[in-house]
């Protein structure tokens, strides 16, 4: 039975996400966000996207939390507590409406794992059938990322490289 595992996980996601937004102390918010990423990676693993789950766990729950904490330690203590104004009336009306609209639209999405959905009939069957003969790589995800779509991956690498350079330029003052 699928739902026996999904619903507690979804509740944990909701609780940690709401906690990260509502909590007053920034340090607690960062740690809650890390645990949110960890539960999200469990969801990815549960849905069968193990590579995505791996990235989410390592980057979201590991590296991201460390970077947030270092930023917090680098700021003055008075900055780490938040005073939030209560949400305005427009927010209270617009966002629930948007949520209902998105839920209504999600009803038209193809069923999860449906082999006849547009995403599963276009080019994925070719990749799944031929990636091993083409590249001797049993992991289809790696074959797609690194071989069929290697130019996209190079673009992502350039993005990461640029982010590192930008951080160094903006944050390192002298020396």
């Amino acid at each position: 039975m699928i739902f026996s595992f999904e619903i507690p996980l979804l509740l944990l996601l909701l609780v940690t996400a709401a906690g990260a937004i509502l909590v007053k102390d920034l340090m607690s918010a960062v740690l809650l966000l890390g645990s949110y990423s960890f539960f999200l990676s469990l969801v990815w693993a549960w849905l069968g996207a193990v590579d995505v789950a791996f990235v989410e766990a390592v980057v979201g729950a590991g590296l991201g939390t460390v970077l947030f904490l270092l930023t917090l330690f680098g700021t003055a203590p008075k900055d780490t507590r938040l005073r939030r104004p209560p949400p305005s009336l427009a927010t209270l009306i617009v966002f629930p409406l948007l949520g209902v609209l998105l839920l209504y639209a999600a009803d038209d999405l193809p069923e999860f794992g449906n082999p006849k959905s547009p995403a599963s009939v276009h080019i994925s069957p070719t990749y799944i059938e031929q990636s091993y003969q083409d590249t001797r790589t049993p992991n289809v995800v790696t074959a797609v990322l690194m071989d069929y779509r290697s130019l996209d991956t190079m673009g992502e690498t350039v993005v990461i490289f640029t982010a590192g350079i930008a951080c160094a330029l903006l944050l390192r003052r002298n020396s």
Binding site: V66, L67, G74, G164, C167, A168, L170, L171, R172, R173
Partner: peptide, 8 residues
């Protein structure tokens, strides 16, 4: 590099 930038 980002960690060193943040903690320099």
């Amino acid at each position: 590099s980002i960690v060193f930038s943040l903690s320099a």
